[in-house]
Write a protein that binds this DNA or RNA. Sequence first.
DNA 1: AGAAAGTACGAGCTTTTGCTCGCATTTGTC
DNA 2: GACAAATGCGAGCAAAAGCTCGTACTTTCT
Lengths: 201, 201
Amino acid sequence: MPERRRQARGERRMAQLLDAAADVFAENGYAKATTNAVAARAGVSPGTLYQFFANKEALAAGLAERYRSALAQAHEQAFDPGFATLPLPELVDRMVEPMIAVNLENPGFKALFTAADMPAHVAAPARELHAAVAGRIGSVIAARLPDRPPEDVHRTAVVATQIFGALLGTILSADGDRDRWVAELKQALIGYLAAFESGGA
Amino acid sequence: MPERRRQARGERRMAQLLDAAADVFAENGYAKATTNAVAARAGVSPGTLYQFFANKEALAAGLAERYRSALAQAHEQAFDPGFATLPLPELVDRMVEPMIAVNLENPGFKALFTAADMPAHVAAPARELHAAVAGRIGSVIAARLPDRPPEDVHRTAVVATQIFGALLGTILSADGDRDRWVAELKQALIGYLAAFESGGA
DNA sequence: AGAAAGTACGAGCTTTTGCTCGCATTTGTC
DNA sequence: GACAAATGCGAGCAAAAGCTCGTACTTTCT
């Protein structure tokens, strides 16, 4: 895999293709999306697409990388020092709001995050996304409850991530009452995490 | 659509084909499953499959029907009169345990329930499954809290259903520590529903 | 200017997949 | 036994989708 030297035009094309992939994935899900459609959406021939991405999975991986970066940036803004001592409802707020915002701005990412259908070898980017989100949640929980076994913290973070993923679709497709569903998501997370904080010991 | 007269052999074939479809769907999900693979698994030619099922979606619909029936039966056994007054943790137990049991006995159904990838027109059976589960949960909630607006009850039931679906995959694929994940699922549901019961009013 | 590498095209290949069709066999009914 | 309907086969069609390849243009470097 000898690293290929890219010109400025090539970098622009890659971003363009990822934009198009995000749109196409968002419309019908990853499985139903076609590489030819992505190329067409980007106003480019299939051959050009494959100049920059080895295959369909590479497109997914590129998008996932974008997501991780966007999420990290959003959370960096939302976490000031001392976040760990906030009351639970406010903490959940600080976690959830940026995640929803990022998903609203990047419709394609939900198709990767909610990856129930992907063939096994293609699911790698989705798994990494899940792991990234769970990692963030886990580190916040660990900061609040330093005495808990890491294994318990991890399991709780995974469950919280899955709850988030489960409601994401409903939230994104809701129009007028989106805030209502977001409130339900927060309530579910608060209820679950409160039990973890008070229990276990 | 003139109803076709079926012989006993035909009924058996249909059941056989649904068994095969459940296996094949369970292995790689609905989208990746092929009708030829289903026919082969049933030890039958593709032509025979299409004698009984008009298309791939009809297979999904048939399986979904099985699921609804199995779930209804399981819940009928789990609900004695007076279930509505049980403490919340026990009530959640009575709801969750049969659902998990049914899913363990019928591996194919998860592929239908967790139908994030299906093309729009094929998602109908999955939607019906979700509606059936949410309906059951909703009626239990309504029995406990008769004074709440039906709309709130419905929304809560939908969220509970999605939480269930989100953790189903992890629970089914867990081996040794399945009970641990089931406990997390119950905790999440208890936490969320407790907030609904004490709040709102 | 000239060479080398990067970018771009798009027809079409290869494989997959849902599904069909003509025909043979089995079952139920009179 | 005879006829119709139901069941069964399996090669193969038509469309879709991931991807390739020969060719031509553009940018960069010396």
